[in-house]
């Protein structure tokens, strides 16, 4: 009835990717962990293992984590080959030990992608996502320049759909799950969020072209429409947004080819 009495404690073998630094060789190392409460979260299990390692004089396993409630997008483990581990629509921090059985061997690896180089053990550098955002993942609205919030009505279905896309937590699970390490779902979510709103129209073409070209330059792979990304996404963001971005990209490409270039962009003579 009460959770902590429902199941027995479990013991597991943790097979963890250990890598001392970015250009160091890495390897799997096995650790035994005993008597774990099934109500413990996966990251709490790692905390416990790390304290044990510390006391033994070994270096603890480095892993990324912060909010531990599935919203900040920091945690990023591949558990038994699945980005964020067992369960649907959750991040690594929302995995609980009850998802495993006594005696299980659990393989834990970092998200693997050339664009996400390993920093240490299970931690990767996902700053490539920031670079994509910096290329165009915004609506230019200088502070103070905004009109009244209700000056521009947004149809509710558009706002709701934009919110679906905007729910992305930027964790990189889509890249990790994609067999090609493609960032299409991440980029599509941002392009769609802003492209669905009337505020985002002025920069719509420029945004999709710039974000896609930055994505390509950073060494992400290409989409082969297998949709592993949306299945692994902790927010279950749909790959429909990828189709939407493809359409946007095609349209932007064609428009850019036929649009006459303005003569000048300078300010007034003042």
């Amino acid at each position: 009835m009460v959770a902590e009495n429902t199941t027995k404690n479990l013991s597991i073998t943790l097979r963890v990717w250990r890598q001392a630094g970015p250009n160091q060789p890495g390897k799997f190392v096995d650790y035994q962990s005993k008597d774990l409460n099934p109500n413990m979260s996966f990251l709490e299990m790692l905390d416990v293992v790390n304290d044990e390692l510390t006391l033994k004089g070994e270096e603890p396993i480095a892993f990324a984590h912060d909010c531990r409630e599935g919203i900040c997008g920091t945690c990023s483990c591949t558990i038994n080959g699945k980005a964020h581990g067992p369960g649907k629509g959750i991040a690594t921090c929302q995995v609980y030990m009850r998802a495993f059985r006594d005696g299980d061997v659990i393989t834990v690896e970092p998200f693997r992608a050339t664009a996400f180089p390993i920093v240490k053990d299970l931690i990767t550098d996902r700053s490539a996502f920031d670079k994509i955002q910096q290329a165009g993942g915004f609506i230019t609205a200088r502070t103070g320049s905004a009109p009244d919030a209700n000056a521009l009505p947004v149809p509710k279905p558009d706002a709701d759909l934009a919110m679906d896309a905007a729910a992305c937590i930027g964790c990189g699970a889509c890249v990790a799950a994609c067999k090609n390490a493609s960032a299409m779902l991440f980029v599509a979510a941002k392009v769609s969020h802003l492209g669905l709103l009337p505020q985002g129209q002025a920069e719509r073409d420029q945004r999709v072209l710039a974000m896609v070209s930055t994505m390509d330059a950073l060494g992400f792979g290409n989409c082969t429409n297998q949709y592993e990304c949306s299945a692994a996404c902790p927010k279950l963001i749909t790959h429909d947004f990828i189709a939407r971005m493809n359409r946007d990209y095609l349209g932007a490409t064609l428009r850019s080819a036929f649009k006459p270039a303005p003569l000048g962009t300078g300010g007034g003579a003042g």
């Binding site: 591949t78 038994n80 393989t107 690896e109 693997r112 050339t114 090609n180 792979g221 299945a231």
Partner: peptide, 13 residues
């Protein structure tokens, strides 16, 4: 783009 492959492979869907 993948670089090092996963030690444990799994396909969801």
């Amino acid at each position: 783009a993948r670089g090092t492959d996963y030690g444990f492979k799994h396909t969801i869907q």
